[in-house]
């Protein structure tokens, strides 16, 4: 069941096309992540959904109500969509309680509701009368989430809300926000440029590039079966090798690896994620894959080992514990776990 539906939405600013014919369907209760490099149009897309911008073309509908198309435009304050901005955008002149209660009516249960919301986002009630600047970055973001939740939105938009936080806090805040939203059963769209965040947060990930959705689907599908090389390397490290396709296998510098070769013949590129590669120093007599270690860089918990395959000038790099790292110059064998991916064969 589609909850939010974008159909060929476009938006231009002068000569720049910020969002180009984007179509996207978000099911109810789903967590969708829009990920893309900076300048790819993520924030504009979010602002179109929120109602701060009107699309030049296309339509946006939520629960079968048109939010914006050629004729109609429902402004932000009548959409019932929650938004958490990058730095929280808390009102500096209001206390935490008044920030959270900003969208609430001045009814009898207001105070109780504010307290319930604070509890929901795990904020201590002693912060009730503090000002936003007296809170840490992570706490401010929780207030922003509570403030948006107060209106019981049907859709919550998160505009890189974790990017201003440092690494450890970032993950913890992300997890707790994600839990709160799931418990409340709110459909969520997160915008981020961080691929790790995108893959771990979303039920659905849409990759945006130059204003277009180049691929959308479940995170693992996108990660292991990206549509093209750019998407592949945006979502994580990749190893791309020339290969000759056979029947459900491909022959490459690593030897014969499994691959869905249906529809591919002759020569082409295959893609592997580095974590699919296993390095071992035990090279049995007569085995192929003659590869040599060219460099070992010590880095504390893990070492970076550079290995050069015969007939290839680009070294492969492996991360492994210093205890397992081979010597420079040692001959090594590389085995592959799982199947290699061939571009242009994305299932999504």
């Amino acid at each position: 069941m589609s909850f939010l539906q974008l159909k060929s939405v476009s938006k231009r600013f002068g000569a720049i096309i910020a969002v180009d014919q984007v179509s996207l369907t978000v099911p109810a209760g789903n967590r969708t992540v829009i990920v893309g490099p900076s300048g790819s149009g993520k924030t504009t897309l979010l602002r179109l959904i929120a109602g701060f911008e009107a699309p030049d073309a296309g339509s946006i509908a939520m629960e079968n109500n048109v939010l914006a198309d050629g004729q109609n435009f429902i402004p932000a304050h009548r959409r019932g969509i929650g938004l958490v901005a990058q730095h929280g955008a808390l009102f500096p002149h209001l206390s935490i309680a008044d920030n959270i209660g900003f969208g609430l009516d001045h009814g009898a249960d207001r105070q109780a509701r504010i307290l319930a919301l604070m509890e929901m986002v795990e904020l201590d009630s002693i912060m009730l009368h503090r000002r936003p600047h007296e809170l840490s970055g992570g706490q401010q973001q929780r207030v922003a989430v509570a403030r948006a939740l107060a209106r019981r939105p049907r859709l919550m938009l998160l505009d890189e809300p974790f990017s201003a936080l440092d690494a450890g806090l970032r993950e913890a805040t992300r997890k707790s926000v994600s839990r709160v939203l799931t418990q409340a059963g709110i459909t969520t769209i997160l915008v981020t440029h961080d691929q790790a965040e995108a893959l771990s947060f979303g039920d659905q990930v849409a990759v945006l590039r130059a204003g277009r959705v180049v691929q959308a689907g479940p995170p693992s599908e996108l990660y292991f079966h990206p549509g093209d090389r750019e998407t592949a390397s945006f979502l994580g490290d990749v190893v791309v090798l020339r290969a000759t396709f056979g029947d459900n296998f491909a022959d490459c510098a690593l030897g014969r690896v499994l691959a869905d070769t249906a529809g591919h013949t002759g020569n082409g590129d295959i893609m592997l994620r580095p974590e699919q590669l296993r390095l071992s120093t035990a090279v049995a007599e007569g085995q192929v894959s003659p590869a040599r270690v060219t460099a070992v860089e010590f880095g504390g918990s893990s070492c970076v080992v550079a290995v050069r395959l015969d007939g290839s000038d680009k070294p492969l790099t492996f991360r492994m514990s210093a205890f397992e790292a081979p010597e420079v110059g040692a001959g090594v064998r590389i085995s592959v776990v799982g199947k290699a991916h061939i571009f242009g064969r994305s299932k999504a």
Partner: peptide, 13 residues
């Protein structure tokens, strides 16, 4: 962003 936050919280522009 503050104006926008107020709008998403139901205030008219």
């Amino acid at each position: 962003e503050l104006e926008e936050a107020a709008m998403t919280l139901g205030r008219s522009p």
